[in-house]
Design a binder for these strands. Structure first.
Lengths: 222, 222
DNA sequence: TTGTATTTTTAGGCTAGCCTAAACTTTTTT
DNA sequence: AAAAAAGTTTAGGCTAGCCTAAAAATACAA
């Protein structure tokens, strides 16, 4: 089935708005505001998307993604986030410059491209915000692990994985003496630059910049 | 000025067709065939492009790119060829898989992106076909240098530069004892895999795979 | 040079995706 | 529960980019 760029943007908007409150459908007005066009235009499009079975739509009742629509949304999110990783990690863009470009790149159509890009980037599990990247089947990482920099409270964490596989980064970690399964105690979070002072395995004190903690996946230690 | 994806494709088509015979304008029929749509649709679009001053168009007389249109065409070609290099060098696509994807990527709008991509790829001067990549100002490499694999005849060449700057490649060259300015004598070209048997500086014999000769820029020795 | 074939343009129509304004539902207020 | 407000849909219109068919211009051949 051929889906236009515009349709993809609607699917993405419905996906992202439906997260605010998954119980109720996304309203026409919210979509109209989010997409910067008028409510009447939204209604037009919702009818077309419903015909394509991408959404469940009932007049005046708001709209939900169908299973098919959800799958499509996740594929778009996957592409968006992978391209973001590419732009930041490989092309040294800064966070604020990246969004508009990724919005364009996410619509490039090629399964093969995105799988190769994923491999090229080292199969990252989270984008540079710490948002999870859906896998090729559209599944979001279900573990409770998140990049360390997503946590805002001191306390004890367990190091369960990395989000970047480059040699320099892995070398940095081993220089710090950090191995999978070890515990990290966050002793201080610097609000200004989001850097972390930590104690690894109750021994050495170390210092993680935001860039480092963005790539260290941890779970809260129970 | 905002140019649509469709308009960009017309500009590109005019650019490429006008090379067959730069003296006469590109005909409506040729464009219609090249773009897979009908002659009447082409006429429509030519009027619009003429209004935007991207082409010189006179009824029944064929069409030429204006300076502005030419600049735009070269920018698109630059993007297309840089993305091709990316897909082949970084994502290990094979030649035949690349075209459709590059056709999409060439329309991504961001100056900054393309300059960073160029730097990331090591400022290649030729794409993997050996077609020259216009620089950021839209100028094509004017020297007579071309990648070695573009030459189909035995004889003497001078090594004037490289088309790829990765460490492994440069190390390979220095292992071969090849330095800028030295001469390369092609003794045999293997038609099957386009590999070259050469003599460097009249001394050692060496063997260049297509991938190596694609990245060695030479001029014919006079 | 005059008739025929080819090429190009014009005219009228269609769809996707947007708009405005009016009509209709639903929700909120009194 | 009726009136007012807010939200949504419908109806009619617009543009970009395509189509077909007919008309006009150009090129070719006798």
């Amino acid at each position: 089935m051929e889906v236009s760029l515009t349709e993809e943007n609607y699917i993405k908007a419905i996906f992202s708005l439906s997260k605010h409150n998954p119980a109720i459908g996304v309203s026409t007005n919210d979509l109209s505001e989010h997409l910067n066009n008028k409510a009447g235009s939204v209604t037009d499009m919702l009818k077309r998307l419903a015909e394509k079975k991408l959404i469940h739509y009932e007049k005046y009742k708001g709209v939900f993604l169908s299973a098919k629509g959800e799958k499509m949304a996740l594929a778009i999110v996957r592409k968006h986030r992978l391209w973001e990783v590419f732009l930041l990690d490989k092309l040294q863009f800064t966070w604020d410059e990246v969004h508009d470009i990724a919005e364009q790149l996410e619509h490039i159509k090629s399964e093969e491209l995105i799988e190769r890009l994923d491999a090229f980037l080292g199969h990252p599990k989270f984008d540079p915000h710490g948002d999870p990247i859906p896998n090729a089947k559209g599944q979001l990482n279900s573990s409770k692990a998140k990049p360390l920099n997503q946590f805002k409270t001191k306390g004890n964490y367990v190091f369960v994985g990395v989000n970047e596989h480059s040699k320099p980064f892995l070398q940095h970690l081993s220089a710090l003496g950090l191995k999978i399964g070890e515990s990290i105690k966050v002793e201080e979070i610097n609000a200004f630059d989001n850097s972390f002072r930590v104690k690894i395995n109750k021994k050495e004190s170390a210092f993680f910049s935001d860039k480092v903690s963005a790539n260290i996946l941890v779970e809260v230690k129970k």
